[in-house]
Design a protein around this nucleic acid. Structure first.
Lengths: 156, 156
DNA sequence: GAGTTATAGTTGCGTCGTCAACTATCTGTT
DNA sequence: AACAGATAGTTGACGACGCAACTATAACTC
């Protein structure tokens, strides 16, 4: 058993500010979307994924992988969003177990109307304080983190 | 109405990787704590705050501010943790409305036993891929973000 | 010092998300 | 072809958290 390596001063400074800033950021983005467009941040992201997909549709499984939530979470989210008229389920011909989630015109319209306000909020809260160099460094860092965590998950 | 400034390539790269990495990171840290020490990430953070406080106690309000959750969330968390024996409520002499949340010896012991595994997980998932320069840049960036968001919240 | 306003903490209600179990279907092995 | 094991999606039970409403106390104003 190695002795514990506690965080250095700078590591601790990063860790605390990262936790605080991230939570506040997500809270504020969610509130902005709900207030201005009646849609949660989580649902907004699902609409984005669908809008970028071929034929504006994805399998439930693909959605859960891409959105970092569980399959059951996606089931419930799509059920909600189907009730709102933003998406619809469609039978999957090639795999009878499966189901497509398709973006509807209404969902696309909702996304289009929510987009500008959301991007403005992202700019106002996050990018307003970042230099171009910061953005490059952090994009590399978080890409590496994502890949690292994903790799680590498979093995252990 | 300004035309919407969508994200540049690098901004988008940062935004996506930040969202994905952050979610996976929090999920993995929570699972590690629950699995190895029977405590959630959220509760762990409350124990940390209490352990660092004078006399190992904080007002409910201070806890909710410091942990970026609502007062009602803190009420419920402290109730749970009181049942687990990690904290106890104490009457506040100087403000009859108020209540202290105090860390118990058992809570301190739980924190001490969970700490090393948690720090190791934080190192393994986050700091493993960051250079010292990355850490400095990102600590400055997130500190600025936190301050910026906090300022922005007050004004409306 | 009486009355208004603000603040501390709790609670009811609703929503969201996870886990574990389940059904239906697909895939690989013999 | 038949069966064992994986995979897709759903559901029930449960826990966590936010909002809004409520009580009690404090702080401010006249």
């Amino acid at each position: 058993m190695e002795p514990t390596r506690w965080l250095t001063h700078d590591e601790h400074r990063l860790w605390r500010s990262f936790l605080d800033a991230t939570r506040m950021l997500f809270q504020d983005l969610d509130k902005q979307l709900v207030r201005d467009s009646g849609i949660s941040f989580a649902d907004y992201e699902i609409l984005v994924l669908l809008s970028e997909a071929e034929d504006r549709r994805l399998r439930m499984r693909e959605l859960s992988d891409a959105s970092t939530t569980t399959r059951s979470g996606i089931t419930r989210a799509i059920t909600r969003m189907e009730a709102a008229g933003w998406v619809q389920r469609a039978e999957c011909e090639s795999d009878k177990r499966g189901a497509w989630a398709e973006l509807t015109d209404k969902g696309a319209a909702t996304l289009a109307s929510a987009g500008p306000g959301h991007v403005a909020a992202v700019r106002a809260t996050m990018f307003a304080v970042l230099s171009p160099d910061d953005i490059t460094v952090m994009a590399d860092a978080f890409t590496a983190m994502r890949d690292h965590i994903q790799l680590h998950r498979r093995s252990g």
